[in-house]
């Protein structure tokens, strides 16, 4: 593509007089993207997350060994070397392979929790904020009850009731992580519900349902996306924590938290067994945090102008 066509494309995207719905939308996305990509750390975060996605997708190709079967005879607790970059664990399994496969479980947990928790929080928060009165009181007291318990303890209680396993861990984390989203969505709703533009839609004769769904939710979504992204690190850590306590993913599943738990016994002599998955959690958490910070700058509704 020549420099000219790139320039004309940019002009088209940044046009002050978009000619179609599509162009207006793309233009807005482009402005947000420019603001986002100008932030180098955020870009680094995005690269980390993309790398995580690629690794998860191609784990089967990238992993040099099986993640679940090891050579019990000859390769137990080997130090990092050319054959085993991150060493091996007590069952002779290649840790690198386990980490690569483990990225799938990390993504699985993170995505499922986001898909379950964010919409619940959004719905509860916007409805409570817009309706006010006793609906607000009831919904928010329920939210408060969930908020009153420490997250890990509540998740522990749920897993204890539901039984250990990664699906139940996801469910437990999701159930414990929606209340902050509801609070954010409600706060955001309260700031816009008395604005003239919502009044104007009321004066069009729109139903409360339509107002919440089509006019209030879109305004809450960006702050929610930011918060969810920033929470990703916490979700990974909670999942790892549950795994570590033996209540999340069960062996031999190569989940990072579970791997740390089983490496704990050798942490002084064979540090890489617990250290490698710990490092992976650190990198991915960092990636999500950087990404979240960048999104905050790019999507902040209050900096809606150019």
């Amino acid at each position: 593509m020549s420099a000219e066509t790139i320039q004309s494309r940019r002009d088209w995207l940044l046009s002050e007089r978009p000619a179609s719905r599509m162009q207006a939308r793309l233009g807005r996305a482009y402005v947000a993207w420019r603001r986002f990509s100008a932030n180098r750390l955020a870009f680094l975060g995005l690269l980390i997350i993309i790398a995580l996605l690629v690794v998860a997708a191609l784990a089967g190709v990238l992993a040099p060994y099986s993640p679940t079967f090891g050579d019990l005879k000859g390769s137990r607790l080997l130090a990092p070397s050319a054959e085993h970059w991150f060493g091996t664990d007590d069952l002779g399994r290649d840790i690198l392979s386990r980490i690569l496969y483990g990225s799938r479980w990390t993504l699985y947990v993170v995505i499922l929790v986001a898909i379950i928790a964010a919409p619940i929080g959004l719905l509860v928060g916007t409805v409570a904020g817009y309706a006010g009165g006793w609906i607000d009181a009831i919904l928010m007291r329920i939210t408060d009850i969930f908020l009153a318990f420490p997250k890990l303890i509540l998740a522990l209680a749920f897993v204890a009731a539901l039984g250990p396993g990664i699906e139940n861990a996801v469910l437990a984390i999701a159930i414990t992580s929606w209340p902050p989203y509801a609070r954010i969505a409600r706060a955001e709703t309260l700031t816009v519900r008395n604005s003239d533009y919502i009044k104007a839609v009321q004066l069009m004769g729109a139903s409360p349902f339509r107002i919440v769904l089509r006019h209030i939710m879109p305004l809450c979504i960006s702050s929610l996306i930011i918060r969810v992204t920033l929470d990703m690190a916490g979700i990974i850590l909670t999942a790892a924590g549950l795994g570590f306590l033996g209540l999340g993913a069960q062996p031999p599943l190569p989940e990072w938290g579970t791997m740390i738990a089983s490496g704990r016994r050798f942490v002084l002599d064979q540090w890489w067994v617990a250290g490698a998955p710990g490092f992976a959690i650190l990198i991915v958490s960092l990636g999500f945090n950087l990404l979240g910070d960048g999104l905050r700058d790019a999507l902040d509704p209050r900096s809606g102008d150019q």
């Binding site: 719905r21 604005s195 003239d196 009044k199 104007a200 839609v201 879109p218």
Partner: peptide
Amino acid sequence: QMVFQDPYGSLHPRQTVD
């Protein structure tokens, strides 16, 4: 129908004129 005082506050910030 009604026209509001503040033109900066009466139009939804995330919607096009269309």
